[in-house]
């Protein structure tokens, strides 16, 4: 085993099962990408359900889309894209060994993530008030709802709109859960960065947290048009 006294900081972070740094870096980055593959397939199950049910009942999906607030959705998209920028800059600072700036960008990412979740909470709360949360209290009369009563194409049974909202809550809920996990992860990393754990020789955790965060952003980049936008004009 290479010992730290002799090898210095160069081999500090080399784990015993690897031959050299290059092997370790390739292995860990491949591991992270494979993990993201599992995430793609995880959300893929819900996207499949969305595809099938949207085609089975386009009117209900139009009604559901119209009941969502594009303002909240667009604002959150902007917030999340901003957090991807701060995250990318955090990784850059980690690469360059800029400790304070790294901490700053991480905190910025956390704050933007929290803003997203805050808006999401307000949205969920409104849905709850309007009885748009699936379950015994769910009620959505497309002929009477403010958002749908003027859209003849968006007339559907309350039950079928409940399916739209089941998907809405499942998809955005799992997305929000991933954000919460990401914020938790990022908080630990901020603390570690502050203490100087990372430097030019060792910043893989920041890099992989970045990949995870960008992936969560990617999911939202699709969720936003699928849930908020494409049902608004047509029942196709």
């Amino acid at each position: 085993m290479p010992t730290s006294e002799i090898a210095g900081s160069h081999d500090l972070a080399l784990r015993h099962q690897f031959v050299n740094q290059e092997q370790q870096r390739d292995a860990s980055s491949m591991g992270m990408w494979l993990f993201l593959v599992t995430e793609v397939m995880f959300f893929g199950g819900m996207f499949t359900a969305y595809l099938i049910y949207r085609h089975a009942n386009p009117a209900a999906f139009m009604a559901g889309s119209l009941a969502l607030s594009v303002e909240y959705g667009a604002f959150n998209t902007v917030v999340l894209i901003g957090s991807s920028l701060t995250m990318a800059l955090a990784v850059r600072c980690a690469q360059l060994g800029q400790r304070k700036a790294l901490v700053g960008w991480l905190i910025g990412t956390i704050l933007l993530g929290a803003t997203f979740l805050g808006v999401k909470a307000v949205e969920y709360h409104e849905k709850w008030e309007n009885h748009h949360v699936p379950g015994p209290t769910f009620n959505f009369d497309t002929a009477k709802e403010e958002s749908t009563k003027d859209h003849p194409e968006a007339q559907a049974s309350s039950k079928s709109v409940e399916m739209y909202f089941s998907l809405y809550f499942a998809m955005t809920g799992m997305h929000a859960l991933h954000m919460i996990i990401g914020i938790g992860l990022m908080s630990v990393l901020t603390w570690m960065s502050w203490r100087g754990t990372f430097g030019r020789d060792y910043f893989a955790p920041i890099e992989y947290a970045g990949l995870y965060w960008h992936f969560v952003d990617l999911v939202w980049i699709y969720l936003f048009p699928l849930l908020y936008l494409i049902g608004r004009r047509h029942t196709f």
């Binding site: 991807s84 920028l85 995250m87 990318a88 970045g210 960008h214 952003d217 990617l218 980049i221 699709y222 936003f224 048009p225 699928l226 936008l229 494409i230 608004r232 004009r233 047509h234 196709f236």
Partner: peptide, 20 residues
Amino acid sequence: NAVVALAIATVKATLVVLFF
């Protein structure tokens, strides 16, 4: 409408994957 929205989303996703 759906095609345009998904095409734009895919362009955005590609940028995130390639650069971020």
